[in-house]
Amino acid sequence: MTLKVENLVGGYSQVPVLKDISFEVKQGQLVGLIGLNGAGKSTTIKHIIGLLQPQKGKITIDGVSLKTSPQVYKQKMAYIPETPILYEELTLKEHLELTMMAYCLETKQAWEKANKLLKTFRLENKLDWFPANFSKGMKQKVMIVCAFITEASLYIIDEPFLGLDPLATKDLLDLIAQKKTEGAAVLMSTHVLSTAQEYCDSFVMIDQGQLTAKGNLADLRQQFSAPKASLSEIYLELARVGERNA
């Protein structure tokens, strides 16, 4: 299961935000998408999930692109947005049912998974409520549960840690680790660099719409010729360079 982004040029209008970005997320890998505010992380994610069309370049999951077979492409992917997005009119239970319907999941099996996840995130007694009235952290948990009951092989997770309590953060990281061993690929954008350094297998760093560095921590250290630097130090260095160029 591989996500391949090749020479992606794109953005919201004719003026491209992303300039020639290429990277890969391989099976069993957690890749951190890292960059300052406005660097182009969310734009990249929007292209991958298909909200924006690439102006140039190609995005494929296992060789399948959104253009050639949209249903297959969408079936393979699950997405957790940065800000929780919920249906005003649906209860928590109905959110789960809807996800099962949309992705044609086998109901019994999916509910088994769902119940386990609901218990993990302490939502099991809120099934009949409207999650639109939950707190930010709890809404985020609903997003996580909905994404992880699918049988997706690619998970796109946009800044998941804000608003989550430490216990839920750990549970989410465990879930990601489990999906990795099952062979899924995960792309996660985040600003929580200590967590990223600890858990991500490799990194994609973006600045002003351009790819500035990629690879695992050892590669990055070599690239910035800072053998002992932490991810956070490399990131700050990158930001400084970017500012000088701006």
């Binding site: 999930i49 909200l51 992705y103 044609c104």
Partner: peptide
């Protein structure tokens, strides 16, 4: 709601 665009539904 972004998810309606992501569902594998035509």
């Amino acid at each position: 709601i972004v998810f309606t665009h992501l569902y594998p539904v035509t």
